[in-house]
């Protein structure tokens, strides 16, 4: 224990980089899992009342747990790179609170619509749910891109485009998720929407790359590197895979390929960032990381608990797997 909890050296030389990897992993899992929920919330807009009940039955047991990945992302960033946590939250102050606000709308909308039966009440909270589900991924995309692209503020073309890309991705994810969770006419429609969104996503991904290329000359070499090209190819493969799987009614394969899209996007963004971790402040991973003792200690906790958390999710998703039925009320 004393050797592991050394205060003079990281237990692995590359521990700061691994911790950066954990930050990216938490963000990626969050994007993937809450992407299902956000997409569901966007597709909720064109569903009728009985379909909405079904969608919420699929959403109900999972969304709170999914949302915790955002908290994990924040706290892992805080634990490893406190100055970065402080910098990016303070720099995009109003944007951060806007995200928290839209996420609250989403959470409250889904819960409170069930509390009363009258039309106006349900419609109001439905609207909150839809607006929150649409704006949250947009603003999150803007926030993450502003951070990664080193923008001094959030109102720049690059982040604004990335926001749309993330929204399109969540519709792909939501469509794929509902393909597994629903049946009949609703499934046909949402899966079709997911396919359309896949096309839009690929387009927006290309636009994002083009904007980064033209606006951020310092990132051109990364953009043209082999790893980026591989990620673009992976995105295309997953996109085609998703459309084909959906039209062949291979719904689980569709979820997998949509997840591949999310992973590719997060790795792409992380590639643009690395080895810097706060470009606007000129901080690299090595500059911003906490001292060896602090990082070694949190790593021990992470090594124990992250696998347990992954276990919870495998269990939770298998417990609530399969299609939802009308009698599974959302409470």
């Amino acid at each position: 224990m004393t050797s592991v909890l050394s205060d003079s050296a990281y237990m692995l030389e590359s521990l700061p980089e691994l911790w950066f990897g954990l930050v990216v992993f938490a963000l990626g899992v969050y994007l993937l899992l809450d992407g299902f929920d956000f997409g569901l919330g966007i597709l909720f807009a064109e569903a009728d009342d009985s379909e909405r009940e079904l969608m919420l039955a699929a959403f109900g047991p999972l969304w709170k747990a999914n949302e915790v990945w955002l908290v994990l992302f924040g706290t892992v960033l805080f634990a490893g790179f406190p100055a970065v946590y402080a910098n990016i939250l303070g720099r995009y102050y109003l944007l951060v609170f806007a995200i928290l606000f839209t996420m609250s709308l989403r959470g409250l909308g889904s819960k409170l619509r069930e509390e009363r039966d009258d039309e106006q009440w349900v419609r109001f909270w439905d609207a909150c749910f839809i607006v929150g589900s649409t704006l949250s991924p947009y603003l999150l995309g803007v926030f993450v891109a502003s951070w990664i692209l080193g923008e001094p503020s959030a109102l720049a073309i690059g982040p604004l485009v990335v926001g749309f890309t993330v929204v399109a991705l969540t519709v792909v994810l939501g469509g794929a998720f509902l393909g597994v969770k629903t049946r009949g006419e609703l499934r046909t429609r949402v899966v079709q929407r997911g396919q359309l969104a896949t096309g839009a996503y690929v387009l927006l991904f290309v636009v994002t790359a083009a904007v980064v290329y033209s606006q951020y000359p310092e990132l051109r070499s990364v953009l043209l590197s082999g790893s980026t090209v591989a990620l673009v190819v992976a995105t295309l493969v997953f996109a085609v895979g998703n459309v084909v799987a959906a039209s062949r009614e291979r719904y689980h394969a569709s979820v997998l390929s949509a997840s591949g899209l999310a992973a590719a996007l997060v790795v792409f963004l992380a590639t643009l960032l690395y080895p810097s971790i706060d470009p606007a402040a000129g901080l690299t991973i090595a500059d911003a990381v906490v001292s060896p003792l602090a990082l070694n200690m949190t790593t021990i906790f992470a090594a124990i608990f992250v696998p347990i958390i992954v276990g919870y999710f495998l269990f939770l998703y298998s417990l609530f797997s399969g299609p939802v039925t009308a009698d599974q009320q959302y409470s």
């Binding site: 709170k64 908290v71 994990l72 706290t75 406190p82 402080a86 906790f301």
Partner: peptide, 28 residues
Amino acid sequence: GELIGGPLSFEAKMAFFLEAVFLGILLF
């Protein structure tokens, strides 16, 4: 950060997931 970032991340890892996952089971 070195003193409070760690405990806050332990809270997320140990407590929040436990609560959120099993509350889903309790409710549904």
